[in-house]
Design a protein around this nucleic acid. Structure first.
Length: 195
DNA sequence: CATGGGATTGACT
DNA sequence: GTCAATCCCATGC
């Protein structure tokens, strides 16, 4: 995984991140669900232009954009596309891989399927907080590494994004087909080619 | 400076 | 199915 991976159209990166691994503070999981956001559409925070909040989104690709949602949860994104373009991939669900005991302690639940099955859940499970906004995803503290062998040929389903009120029709959600670790089941019909 | 609205979750009916 | 929690920040006066 290198910086050029992120310096591409957001839809490609969102699809290709399925099967990659997120690691932080002794815990890791395989990405099974993502969503794409781009400053050309109103559901994206960057739609309003460069502000203190969206500065990270318009910066270098391969950087973490972490923000607080509903006053409670921290949500993890990977900034993509060249500097000057406000785009990011929201990491929405992981299949737990390592540090499961630590995830169970942080989350206060034991069922493995419930540890990282949502964008707010996975940041809690991995101990990712707002302080990590702007940090580098190639060097850490939060690190994303490439697809493992077993995920090389994962099939990716496409669906509408969840929890938004604008641009709801765009099919910009990507899920590992048939995964038990999604925040919600994906539409079975549509599939995206996996590069 | 005041206000309103979330890229959610968990508890409850 | 409904709903509150809780805080950052964009917007408008």
């Amino acid at each position: 995984m290198n910086r050029s991976f992120y310096n591409r159209p957001v839809l490609e990166v969102a699809r290709d991140l399925i099967g990659c691994v997120v690691t932080h503070d002794g815990a890791a999981g395989v990405i099974v669900e993502t969503e794409a956001y781009h400053d050309s559409e109103p559901a994206c925070h960057a739609f309003v232009g460069i502000t203190p909040r969206t500065q990270t989104l318009f910066g270098a690709p391969g950087v973490a954009y972490v923000y607080r949602s509903y006053g409670i949860h921290a949500l993890l994104n990977a900034v993509v596309e060249p500097p000057g373009v406000g785009a990011a991939v929201l990491i929405r669900a992981l299949e737990p891989l390592r540090g499961i005991e630590q995830m169970q302690v942080r989350r206060g639940v034991s069922r493995v399927e419930a540890l990282c099955s949502g964008p707010g859940k996975l940041t809690q499970a991995l101990g990712i907080g707002l302080a990590l906004n702007g940090t580098n995803l190639l060097h850490g503290p939060v690190v994303i590494t490439g697809r493992r062998a077993r995920w090389r040929d994962v099939r990716v389903a496409v669906d509408r994004r969840i929890g938004i009120t604008k641009a709801v029709e765009l099919p910009w959600r990507f899920c590992a087909t048939g995964s038990r670790f999604l925040s919600r089941p994906a539409l079975a019909a549509a599939e995206a080619g996996s590069a």
